[in-house]
C-alpha cells in the first residue's frame, strides 16, 4: 500500500466550497528514462484519480507521465451532506488504491 496524505476538513458548513488535497507515494516512472543498466525503464504511472462524495463522483483526473512523482492534486467541492469521501487511484501494473474519509456537514 502506497502512503497517502489527504487533507480533508473534518467539518464543513453546508453549501460552502471546501478544498481537498490528495498526495500519494508513487514513482510515476515515465517510460522515457533509462535505468542504471542503460535499458529504458518501462512506464509505471497512475492513470486515473477520482474523488466521490457518498458514491457520486465530484472530481476525476487522467494523469500522464508529465505529472511529477508522488502525484499531488488539489481541487474544490461543495459540501452537501455528511458522508464519506472516497479517493481512488488506478494505474499501470494493476495499481489500485482507495482511501476514505468521513466528513460532517453542519447546517
Amino acid at each position: 500500500m502506497a502512503r497517502v496524505i489527504l487533507q480533508v476538513p473534518a467539518t464543513a458548513v453546508r453549501g460552502s466550497v471546501i478544498e481537498l488535497r490528495a498526495l500519494i507515494q508513487h514513482p510515476m516512472e515515465t517510460g522515457f528514462r533509462p535505468g542504471s543498466s542503460g535499458e529504458v525503464l518501462p512506464r509505471d504511472i497512475i492513470r486515473r484519480f477520482a474523488c466521490a462524495w457518498d458514491g457520486e463522483e465530484v472530481f476525476s483526473a487522467e494523469l500522464h507521465p508529465a505529472i511529477a512523482a508522488n502525484p499531488y492534486l488539489a481541487f474544490t467541492t461543495i459540501a452537501t451532506e455528511s458522508g464519506t469521501l472516497t479517493f481512488t487511484w488506478k494505474g499501470d501494473n494493476g495499481f489500485a488504491q482507495t482511501e476514505t474519509r468521513r466528513i460532517t456537514v453542519t447546517p
Binding site: 515515465t30 462524495w53 457520486e56 472530481f59 508529465a66 481541487f75 467541492t77 461543495i78
Partner: peptide
C-alpha cells in the same frame, strides 16, 4: 457544477 470553483493544483514535470 459540484466543484464550486474551477481551480486545480498539481505538480508537473
Amino acid at each position: 457544477p459540484r466543484a464550486g470553483r474551477a481551480a486545480i493544483t498539481t505538480r508537473m514535470r
